[in-house]
C-alpha cells in the first residue's frame, strides 16, 4: 500500500500568453484524498514523475467545502470543484487524474483562471435588492415558506462558473451572460423589493448577450454543483422578458 502512487496529469500554462503544456506528477496514495490534497502535495514537492524539478502548480481555492466556488477546474474532462473531487472515486473510472483549467475563461496561470466577466455581468444586471440604506427601518417583507424555498435554491449560486464552462453558447468570442446571471435575475425579480428594479434587469436581459442568446442545450443544470434549477430560471426570465417587451411595445415607450 505505501508504494501505491497516483498519476496526476496537469495542463499548465506559465502566464496568460504562454502556450500550455502537460506535466505528470506521481503522488503517494493515501486514503480519503481529494484533488486539493494532491495539489497541496505538489506544492510541497514540485517534482514531476520523471524527476524534473518544476514550480508548484498554481490554482485557485479558498473554503475547500464546496461553498465558495473558487477551486473549479476540469477534472477528467468534467468541470467541478476540486475539493469535492475524491481521488478514490476518480480512480474507479480512470487510472489517472487529468486536471485542466476551465476553457471559457482566460488562464492567468496553470489552473487559475480569470472569472471577472461573471462578476461584471452581475453588476450589469443589477444583482441586488435596492434597499434604502443600512438604517433601522423595520423588517423586510414577509414571505411564504414555499417562496423562500424557491429563492433559497437560487441564492446558493456561488459563481463557480460550471454552468458557463459547459454552455455551448457561452464562449470567449461572445458576450452571453449565461445561466448563473440569468438565474440571479430571477432571484432578484421574485423578491418583492428586488422587483422594484425588475424592468432594469429585464432591459439588460434583452441586450445582446442576454436571455435570448440561450440555446437551450440545458447542460448548465446538469453540472450545477448546488442543483440550482437553472433551466427553470431561464424559462422564467424568458416569460418575464416576453411580458415586459409586450408591455413596452404597447405602452409606446
Amino acid at each position: 500500500m505505501p508504494d501505491r502512487t497516483i498519476q496526476l496529469k496537469i495542463k499548465r500554462q506559465d502566464d496568460q500568453s504562454a502556450s500550455p503544456y502537460w506535466q505528470t506528477f506521481s503522488i503517494p496514495y493515501r486514503p480519503n484524498m481529494n484533488v486539493i490534497s494532491c495539489l497541496q502535495y505538489i506544492a510541497a514537492h514540485p517534482t514531476t514523475a520523471d524527476g524534473t524539478e518544476t514550480t508548484p502548480v498554481v490554482w485557485d481555492c479558498s473554503c475547500l467545502e464546496e461553498v465558495c466556488g473558487a477551486c473549479t477546474m476540469v477534472i477528467n474532462g468534467e468541470v467541478r470543484q476540486s475539493c469535492s473531487a475524491l481521488v478514490d472515486r476518480l480512480l474507479e473510472e480512470d487510472d489517472s487524474i487529468k486536471l485542466e483549467p476551465m476553457t471559457k475563461f482566460p488562464v492567468v496561470r496553470d489552473l487559475f483562471v480569470d472569472r471577472s466577466r461573471l462578476f461584471e455581468d452581475l453588476k450589469k444586471t443589477q444583482g441586488w435588492v435596492p434597499i434604502d440604506g443600512l438604517y433601522s427601518l423595520g423588517p423586510g417583507p414577509w414571505e411564504s415558506p414555499a417562496k423562500q424555498d424557491t429563492r433559497y435554491d437560487l441564492s446558493r449560486c456561488m459563481s463557480c462558473g460550471c454552468c458557463l464552462e459547459v454552455c455551448p453558447q457561452y464562449t470567449r468570442n461572445n458576450n452571453f451572460v449565461g445561466a448563473a446571471v440569468i438565474s440571479q435575475v430571477r432571484y432578484f425579480n421574485t423578491h418583492p423589493i428586488g422587483a422594484n428594479n425588475a424592468a432594469e434587469r429585464l432591459n439588460a436581459m434583452m441586450e445582446p448577450g442576454g436571455i435570448s442568446d440561450c440555446g437551450n442545450a440545458q447542460n448548465c443544470v446538469k453540472v450545477c454543483p448546488k442543483d440550482i434549477p437553472l433551466t427553470e430560471s431561464i424559462a422564467d426570465v424568458g416569460r418575464m422578458t416576453t411580458i415586459h417587451s409586450i408591455k413596452q411595445f404597447f405602452r409606446g415607450e
Binding site: 435588492v129 434597499i131 443600512l134 433601522s136 427601518l137 423595520g138 423588517p139 423586510g140 414577509w142 414571505e143 411564504s144 415558506p145 423562500q148 429563492r151 433559497y152 441564492s155 432578484f188 423578491h191 423589493i193 428586488g194
Partner: peptide, 22 residues
C-alpha cells in the same frame, strides 16, 4: 434584532414560518 431586520430587507432567504415570518 435590527441587524436581522436589515438582512431581511436585503433579501436574505431566511427560513420562514407558515405565516411567513422568520
Amino acid at each position: 434584532p435590527q441587524i436581522i431586520d436589515l438582512l431581511d430587507r436585503m433579501g436574505v432567504p431566511f427560513n420562514r414560518t407558515p405565516e411567513g415570518r422568520r
